[in-house]
């Protein structure tokens, strides 16, 4: 926050070391913002499609626990590609990047704490249904897998 400029900068809006739009009052150059070449966009899209194919392929490999980590890893890479190139985050103001990754961090924080909590009492949970509940199940959906209180 504190490294942000105090007053609005002149016309060159986007921060970062990349080529900036020059000042042109009219015509085919933007007044503000950052130009991304079309090739970059197309290459990004192709990379995303290839990664999609890879992640589908991984699904059919049996590598136990690692399946979800690989799938999530690929998803994170894809999401980063979208954010950095499609959403121009690579050339955008750093604070926008902070906002975005900050909020992801908070989701991770919430997820981490909730998982820590629920996995703590997972083994203490009653395995099966109390008799009356089991009876309700049998009443209403005889085909449902019915648990029974088997403490």
């Amino acid at each position: 926050m504190s490294h942000e400029p105090h007053s609005p900068p002149p016309i060159e809006a986007a921060a970062g070391g990349h080529a900036h739009a020059a000042v042109h009052p009219a015509g085919d150059q933007p007044l503000v913002g950052h130009l991304v070449p079309m090739t970059t966009l197309v290459v990004t899209a192709c990379a995303l499609l290839v990664l999609t194919c890879i992640t589908v392929a991984v699904r059919y490999m049996d590598i136990g626990e690692f399946n979800i980590y690989i799938a999530l890893g690929i998803a994170v890479i894809k999401a980063s590609l979208v954010a950095l190139f499609f959403m121009h985050l690579r050339w955008d103001r750093p604070f926008n990047m902070i906002v975005f990754f900050g909020c992801v961090l908070f989701v991770v924080l919430m997820m981490g704490f909730c998982l820590m909590d629920t996995s703590q009492y997972r083994h203490e949970q009653i395995n099966g249904n109390p008799p009356l509940v089991a009876e309700t199940l049998l009443q209403n959906a005889p085909n449902a897998p019915v648990g029974r209180f088997d403490q």
């Binding site: 395995n127 249904n129 109390p130 199940l137 648990g147």
Partner: peptide, 9 residues
């Protein structure tokens, strides 16, 4: 109707 818990043994 409610459906609870784990499968039968």
């Amino acid at each position: 109707p409610s459906f609870v818990g784990a499968p039968l043994t």
